[in-house]
Design a protein around this nucleic acid. Sequence first.
DNA 1: GCCGTTTTCGGCCCGACTGTTTTCAGTCG
Length: 582
Amino acid sequence: MTNHEIAKILFEMAALWDMLGVEFKPRSYEKAAEGVEGHGDSLTEAYKKNGIKGLLEVPGVGKGIAGHIEELLKTGHYKEYEELKKKIPVDISNLMRVQGLGPKNIKTLWEKLEIRNLDDLERAAKAQKIRALRQFGQKSEEKILRGIEFLKQSGGRQLLGVLLPEIRDLEKRITSFPEVERAAFAGSARRRKETVGDIDLLAVSSKPEAVVDRFLALPEIDHVYGKGPTKINVRLKNGVDADLRIVPAESFGAALCYFTGSKDHNIKLREIAIKKGLKLNEYGLFKGNKRVSGRTEDELYRTLGLSYVEPELRESAGEIEAAREGRLPDLVGYEDLKGDLQVQTNWTDGEDTIEAMVDAAERYGLQYIAITDHTKSLAMTGGADEAKLLKQMAAIDQINRKLRKQKRNFRVLKGAEVNIQKDGSLDIADEVLGKLDVVGVAVHSHFNLTREEQTRRVLRAIENPNADIFFHPTARSIQRREPIALDMDEVIRAAKRAGTVLEIDSLPDRLDLKDEYIRRCVESGVRMCIDSDSHSVSHFQYLELGIGQARRGWATKKDIVNTLPVDEFLSSLKGSPQRRRE
DNA sequence: GCCGTTTTCGGCCCGACTGTTTTCAGTCG
């Protein structure tokens, strides 16, 4: 059973308790579901290894829910859930996805109209049966139909890398309104989560109504869900929802914090406020009616007795405690990278020449890149064999000579993205690998091996003395392909033993390693690198996403090898300098 | 049902907005 499947049942339980009017339980189940969903390790495995103790390690899961999960894993059944489902046999998870429908309304729709799923809901709404219900009306009915339509069209979250440019564009346009002093985007995009559900925007103005009017006039807006004097909620033509909130300058910090989230982080801040006899909301931190803080986030955190928490850390994952004790990490910065260690060119499946990639990387502010074209067993990309690699090395030597002559402070490293074969061996001869500056190894096939087989295969590759970096370790593709089944703790231990660097691949749909594994590497002292995996000159911009992910994993500059200047970087690789002789 | 630098019992964030209501429940973030 996957974590996702377990989490789904717990989410449904939360809704079911809500329908029954039970207090506090819903929130507990919800929190447990979130904990399970976000847990990197399979609970099935954790339970096999450590029994109920393994389950209790998940945040939000206590004795009660751990017992239910155990029952589910052991017997495939969960009695209480099945009984509640018998009482209210509806497709809760899908119905909850309709904007404006929550547990209470779903219960009413089931009791009065026997609506069980989205199809029933759509039929009833189209037949105008819903408007006749108490507490519903024509507008609710129309809203439900729009919600169903929206689900059919887009359905869910989009990749951060896809939305970020559009979010920044909106931010810029709002900033340019004459009544606006300043504007900022917040929400999960500011926390650099890998996917974004909707766009949260914040503006400072003393004329909020005028800002609302100007925002409404933007051509991007498709539909207005709701608007008030300081708040507006719309759907954009690109299919994404956006919220704009307008606050006075003295509330900007508090509003930015509130709007950035995460929700759990905010709740913890508010609890700290309560304990200090204060009240925290989006307008500021208050003692009675007196605002004591809130103009900037920095000030707000300090008043609460905390050091400033970077947005990427605000996931209620220990950052509050660390902020209280002054032991937050000094995160790797967005300007800290000096090199990029995974770059493809038109020698295989990249679009551009080595020279073009060099120019683009230099413009981006880098000092070195490794050219890492695919190798031969990845035939569809025109992967290089030994002879082609040797030829490319000669070409790179020539480019470096030219760069030196032009007095450019830039170096091209000879590398490859070497394919890991099914048995964990590499598809290029050791003798040639030994001539490269940087050897990356990667999984591009046999994604469906068992966890034991896959882990064994990957360990063999990591332990290969020629393998400097393990590229995109879990081979996931967000919203498209599941990660390969790996015992990540084993992988991290092996990387530590062998001195192999683990990569954070920055492509919008990879972001692999993901935040949770990055944090484990940081804790284990395993070094990582942040690469763009560029296949064209425009892809270096994605490095920002990888850096964001690294920050979400609490990584500092010293955890990331390509923050080093080129010579220091090269001599930090395993086996060097013996293996590499110029 | 969870959780703990005020607690192993007694709490559990806070406000905006909608739609249906004549004062508020439900949803959302």
